[in-house]
């Protein structure tokens, strides 16, 4: 318990003193996870909408697959991306293994199913309510999908945050494809894992505090924004 207190004090010092190593790691974490969420949203939201309102062969297997892949183990995603990007792999010529680009790719793969499956549920519920009206107005399935994406935007914000939470908290995928290289691919979670095993608890703890604070702040602000706009727009 004494150890915890001492480490905690040093950790707070690092956070309040805006330690430059700490800031670099936090900045890279945000850059990787936010980029991954943006890419995953670009892919996952239309995919979710298509699975919700589209009537095409393979739709049901797609939904089952998306739901199952919500729980993809990050280390397995990391391993597969590692094999694809390694020099002998099919995407080896890109030369992005052990770079932030590889980490973004891995996290994107990890959270596309989360965003697609959750948005599919949201949009399908809306489709039950809107379907007849949209068809009556002459809206085809593709057009209806985009209309519903926009109409459920407040709920989809929560879906995207779920993806961001998953991306920023996972360690396995970025560890494998990033390599945890100091100053290059070291993010909050991989640093916590490494520093803890090295016994340098203050830095690990400081990052843990930052990570939890960030996740909390993001979710709290998203919740408040959603409340405010929903009150205005109904």
């Amino acid at each position: 318990m004494q150890e915890f207190g001492r480490s905690g004090a040093v950790a707070l010092g690092l956070v309040t003193g805006l330690d430059s190593d700490l800031l670099a790691i936090v900045a890279l974490s945000l850059q990787v996870s936010l980029s991954a969420v943006a890419m995953a949203a670009l892919i996952g939201l239309p995919l979710g909408a298509a699975a919700a309102v589209g009537r095409f062969p393979g739709r049901r297997p797609l939904i089952v697959l998306l739901n199952a892949f919500m729980g993809l183990p990050p280390v397995v995603v990391g391993l597969v991306i590692y094999l694809l990007l390694s020099r002998a792999g099919p995407l080896g010529h890109l030369g992005i293994l052990f770079t932030p680009a590889a980490m973004i790719l891995a996290q994107t793969v990890l959270i596309v199913p989360i965003i697609a499956a959750l948005s599919r549920q949201v949009i399908e519920d809306a489709w039950v309510e809107y379907g007849e009206q949209l068809r009556s107005l002459g809206s085809g399935p593709a057009r209806s999908g985009f209309t519903l994406l926009w109409d459920t935007r407040f709920s989809l914000l929560t879906v995207i945050l779920a993806g961001l939470g998953r991306a920023s908290a996972e360690v396995g995928a970025v560890m494998i494809v990033g390599g945890n290289i100091d100053g290059v691919t070291r993010v909050m979670t991989t640093t916590i894992a490494l520093e803890t095993s090295k016994g340098d608890l203050p830095l690990a703890l400081a990052l843990g505090i930052v990570l939890i604070t960030l996740v909390f702040a993001l979710n709290a602000s998203a919740y408040l924004i959603k409340e405010a706009v929903q009150r205005r727009h109904g």
Partner: peptide
């Protein structure tokens, strides 16, 4: 269906302004 319209028991309106609900319908036609 472009020459028909229907009003339902419970109106289904889009989450946008009253005016934009109408321009949306006009765009579809």
């Amino acid at each position: 269906i472009a020459r028909q319209a229907m009003v339902f028991q419970r109106p289904v309106l889009l989450r946008r302004s009253a005016l934009r609900n109408l321009t949306h319908a006009l765009a579809l036609r």
